[in-house]
């Protein structure tokens, strides 16, 4: 994370994401959406951020051992930063491929695990950065230009 980029952050909010909790899943994204609407952000952008935030949150619930999702708003962009505590993605290129999923049977029964989470995040964001280390965790940063 670069320090100088944070200087003009107008607002920031951090959400704890609990692994495996499908009932709570979606709460953070809903909260982010309401916040952006209150701030008067253009509806089309709100929708894109909301979809990306939802997919990020669900990914963390299904695949990670938990982590945090942070929303940053600057005069020029909205940034979604998600960091989990593991287990990390083995092959990012494969994970980005539409239809590829490592979701559990339970997650699939609930309608998750379509293999479209990361592709949806990429499609909705203007810039996506994803880094992951096995055993360490994953860091995702998605930017939306205002």
């Amino acid at each position: 994370m670069t320090q100088n980029a944070n200087e003009d952050v107008i607002m920031t909010n951090t959400y704890e994401i609990e692994a495996g909790n499908f009932t709570l899943a979606g709460e953070a994204a809903s909260n982010i959406k309401k916040l952006l609407r209150q701030l008067g952000i253009e509806a089309k952008i709100v929708r894109r951020v909301a979809i990306a935030a939802y997919e990020t949150e669900i990914n963390m619930v299904i695949h990670s051992v938990g982590g945090t999702m942070k929303l940053e708003i600057t005069p020029r962009e909205i940034i979604l930063k998600a960091r989990d505590r593991g287990p990390g993605i083995e092959d990012i290129e494969l994970a980005m491929k539409e239809g590829y999923s490592t979701a559990t049977e339970l997650a699939r029964e609930l309608g998750f695990g379509a293999g479209m989470g990361l592709p949806n995040i990429k499609r909705c964001s203007d810039k996506l950065h994803l880094q992951s280390e096995l055993g360490q965790g994953t860091y995702l940063e998605a930017k939306f230009f205002l």
């Binding site: 979809i51 939802y54 997919e55 669900i58 609930l110 309608g111 998750f112 695990g113 379509a114 293999g115 479209m116 989470g117 592709p119 949806n120 499609r123």
Partner: peptide, 9 residues
């Protein structure tokens, strides 16, 4: 649709 990510897209 019943696959949530597909619906999201």
């Amino acid at each position: 649709g019943d696959l949530l990510s597909r619906v999201m897209a």
